[in-house]
Design a protein around this nucleic acid. Structure first.
Lengths: 343, 343
DNA sequence: TTTTAACACGCAAACGTTTTCGTAAGTTAA
DNA sequence: TTAACTTACGAAAACGTTTGCGTGTTAAAA
């Protein structure tokens, strides 16, 4: 195994000092042209690359952004990562991704690990467990150590930091509104339990849309799902014998599962029932019928989050104790799962 | 902004030396019980965490694994990452993920970046462009600097290193065979252009299966797709007026697109045509009809790759100039897109 | 009382950089 | 010839750790 080449090696080989080598490589005028060229030629020959670790230690910054997300096998989050990487690379930053697997403990461990020298700041979306536990000490601690944190999607209201979100309520309202506007009157919602912040918000948007149409809230039309893995059964149970003409689902999986169940019980989507989902992922696009859905613009979210974080990092000392919340517009993507009701 | 606390701070505060603090925190017998307790209490109070960067520099190892994949927004790759993370965490390693976006240049940059101090070894699947270019200098360089590399899925045969793959040909053979065994006689394949190694292999497996059934190769039944984004059109063109009873697709997207096209031209899946895909992703599972497919066991791949890499890292000097290629079994998952033909 | 041993701690080097400052030699001006 | 600059380089400190070794103090053994 060859060793990695260092300044010291070059210095010894060329019989100069380490500092001379360092300066020569940086084209310092302090060093004679002759020496500079010799050093650079040698460095190139042996493919010298400065050791990032040493640089990080010296500069007290790593030039890398830490991302902590609840799940890595998740289309929305990966699109966000894509956005982050895009601007990070533009600005000369690297990206470290860790997934918490929705576990509070793993979130804490990852955060502490990255905070102890591996990243300059964070972009994160918290784990389900964290939302449930309401324990944010790890986030507060890293912030109090001077590391900026930007939260996205699943944010914590109580935490004072930059945030990038969509207006979940408004998005849901938009989706429900679409159903109303095409003539649906009996609209069910399939959502998550309330401790998932985005689920709760989307539910409220659904309600708001109904209210605007003077349709009273009806608990029979609201399904809150706890166990995602088993959602098909509970959705089947819920939809059985229900007289509806529209379904609003707060995520992709619920939406396609609803369509499946409806098909099974003999209802046609969109002829008998229109369905609107949330998140524009692979499923929505390729499913038959393709799903009308609310796009969250994950990539843009990532980009904005990265920009916010990098700005904070580069403004440094200037004590910008000012935190911003940027709201990304959602948009309705109309596809084949919704259809105007003729009368 | 509060500063991060270091040994030096603790030392000054407690009026002892840095080394005493370090030793005390490690419960060294060199230090009196009294001092040890004092130091530990103080460290806990101020939430001291050793700086990883400094440790990495000192130990000349980072305890992190670098992953380089072609795409981050890709279900299969993310499942692999999941597997890697699982065993990495078990063994006390961290994971850094970088995506090359299928760009050769970005692959090189990421690799060099990680190699210069951020990771101890690599788990990677190469970019399309790299396969096309056949330029592997960056991988060879990092290997020659003593950093172990484990390749998976899209590997490079010429490179001498550990590898984790599935037997793509065998998997494709298994899939095609399934079609044959249920009575299909006219089986088309939708595959990629040949420079994608896995596409080529899967095509050969398809051919092998046919051969075993004494069915001659028929170019009319083979579609090689270059432009993935526009695959629907070319698949539609390909399938139009074609007399077939089975389709084998080398990935999920091609499979669902084929089903869609078939539906459009009035053929029922699986009644008229059976379809088998490759990769067990979200689409295959939730599509209607759900897709019979070949599972690549991505998570297991990740686990094996991580194990191989960590073994290499920990065996260290013992000059294990021995490289292994582990082949993960594929399996057929039978679902609703294939059906026995009655006669 | 002297020698020895145990104890508790500090010094300094090392990891690979960068950068400030100091300085020897050479050059120019007085 | 001497003073004042240049030029070209080296020494050393710093970033935060760990660790082998040296050392002063005290207590036990001779």
């Amino acid at each position: 195994m060859k060793q990695k080449i260092t300044l010291k090696h070059i210095a010894k080989e060329l019989d100069v000092s380490v500092s001379t080598v360092s300066k020569a490589l940086k084209d310092s005028v302090e060093i004679s042209l002759d020496t500079r060229q010799k050093v650079k030629a040698f460095a190139k020959l042996y493919n010298y690359k400065p050791n990032n670790i040493a640089l990080s230690l010296k500069n007290r910054k790593t030039k890398t952004l830490g991302i902590i997300i609840p799940e890595i096998v998740h289309h929305f989050f990966t699109t966000v990562i894509g956005g982050v990487e895009k601007v990070a690379n533009e600005k000369g930053y690297n990206v470290i991704i860790c997934s918490s697997n929705n576990s509070f403990d793993k979130e804490v461990i990852n955060m502490e690990m990255l905070a102890s020298g591996s990243a300059d700041g964070f972009i994160m979306s918290v784990a389900k467990e964290t939302q449930l536990k309401k324990d944010y000490h790890h986030i507060q601690e890293t912030m109090s150590q001077g590391m900026p944190v930007v939260m996205f999607d699943r944010i914590i209201d109580e935490l004072v930091c930059d945030k990038v979100i969509i207006d979940d309520a408004k998005g849901a309202q938009m989706g429900t509104n679409h159903l109303l506007s095409i003539g649906c009157k009996k609209i069910a919602i399939i959502t998550t339990v309330d401790y998932i912040s985005v689920g709760k918000l989307r539910t409220s948007g659904y309600l708001r849309a109904l209210m605007a149409y003077d349709i009273p809230e009806n608990q029979d039309y609201i399904l809150k799902i706890e166990d995602v893995d088993n959602c098909e059964n509970v959705i089947a149970e819920f939809l059985k014998n229900k007289d509806i003409d529209g379904v609003f689902a707060v995520n992709e999986l619920f939406a396609v599962t609803a369509v499946k169940v409806l098909k099974k019980i003999g209802k046609n989507v969109p002829k008998d029932v229109s369905v609107v989902g949330f998140t524009d992922g692979i499923l929505s696009k390729h499913f038959i019928p393709s799903l009308t859905t609310i796009s969250q613009h994950g990539e843009e979210m990532g980009e904005r989050a990265a920009r916010l974080l990098i700005e904070k990092l580069e403004s440094e000392e200037e004590a910008t104790e000012e935190y911003r919340t940027v709201i990304i517009d959602t948009s309705l993507i109309e596809r084949a799962s919704t259809k105007k009701i003729k009368n």
